[in-house]
Nucleic acid binder design. Sequence first.
DNA 1: CTTCTGCCCTGGGAGC
DNA 2: TGCTCCCAGGGCAGAA
Length: 307
Amino acid sequence: MPELPEVETVRDGLERSVVGAVVERVEVYRDYSVRRHTGGPRDFEGQLVGRRLEAAVRRGKYLWLPLAGGDEALVGHLGMSGQLLVRTAPTRTVSPHLRVRLSLRDPSGAAIELDFVDQRTFGHLSVAELVPTADGAPGGAGTEAPLVPVPVEHIARDLLDPVLAVGTSGREALVERVRRRRTGIKRALLDQTVVSGIGNIYADEALWRSRMHFARSTAAMTRPAVRMVLDAAHEVMTQALAQGGTSFDALYVNVNGASGYFDRSLDAYGRTGQPCRRCGTLIVRDEFMNRSSFRCPVCQRTPRPPR
DNA sequence: CTTCTGCCCTGGGAGC
DNA sequence: TGCTCCCAGGGCAGAA
């Protein structure tokens, strides 16, 4: 499932393949896939036709393509199973999970199809207004413009954002924000209003690398401990991005959670019953927020319950 | 304001 | 073989 590194791979692909192209036709095959769009799917189609895609921007797991001729953007979230596939030649087979198709014309006159394919339909597209960022800094990766779409306004910056770079005041402010929370460290890492882009997989990987239990109280954590887990999250996502980038094909912007990075490099996530790569103890699975959490029971000790 | 729960959705795979 | 049920989980509404 796409988290920050996968979404950044998609953003990079879109930047190279569809930026500069003009939307000629929009087909919505599944209304549910166009959500949080004022006006509904028909209005979505009308808003896009004739507009040129000006950039490809990402914050956390949100993507957006600012549209020429107005402060609006095509906004996308891939959810669990979403893919944005770029094709420059007609295809014989159409995915049964094709939800939205944008037919584009690039500056050279060539036809491009941008397909939103999403099996589980947790992802969605919309057109939304762009508004200034609260801090005046660029809205996300891939742009210098200090703008974000309205649905992204409440989404915090992610760890690859220069505003949150290690050693900056932004990073230290994030450390303090985490310490002010009254919750467990994994809940804080997953809260997209605190820091964005971290999902269940990379949260578990960051906690394993930091030797921390998911339920450790944020309020009781020292600054160095919070720095450590944030650095670990940053590191694991950077490494994943480096691997995801190598398999990228410019003509096929792909997101596939089952490929590449996932199979080879995970230390905790999904490794129930397999030996911890540090100490050999078998990884366990815990119930957490109605989903799963994977950890080494020795490296990541259960914290004392608060009194 | 903060924290937390339940729900949205689909199809692959396990279990019988 | 065929049926049923569980599971994956990001983000949001609404409750506490």
